[in-house]
């Protein structure tokens, strides 16, 4: 597989390591009332879609950046890749502004 790195262009998947579902970016609030249940979900429960899936990849043998790669788990077609730091920043901005 070739992963289209947003900064470095097409790179071989061999250079990356896979972490898992991109929902891992949504770490629950540890001070919330339901933190136990939220962390149980966060840690153990995953969707396992046959189709388009957003997942975290680490460019270990490259620039060491975390990417969110959108991949079709049936065809292995890579539909896009973005820097996880940009996605996380957008998410926190939306949370702060309540959008």
């Amino acid at each position: 597989m070739i992963i289209p790195h947003p900064l470095l262009g097409p790179r071989d998947a061999q250079e990356f390591t896979y972490l898992g579902d991109a929902s891992l970016l949504n770490r629950p609030d540890w001070q919330a009332e339901n933190a136990d249940a939220a962390f149980y979900d966060y840690q153990y429960l995953r969707n396992n879609p046959a189709g388009v899936h957003r997942e975290l990849w680490f460019h270990e043998q490259g620039d060491r950046s975390w990417l969110i790669v959108t991949r079709n788990t049936v065809t292995h077609e890579i539909l896009g890749a973005e820097l996880a730091v940009d996605v996380a920043r957008d998410m926190s901005t939306k949370t702060e502004t309540g959008v």
């Binding site: 270990e60 043998q61 490259g62 620039d63």
Partner: peptide, 9 residues
């Protein structure tokens, strides 16, 4: 470029 050669970064 940062890459691998014979598994060495």
């Amino acid at each position: 470029v940062r890459t691998t050669i014979e598994h060495m970064g």
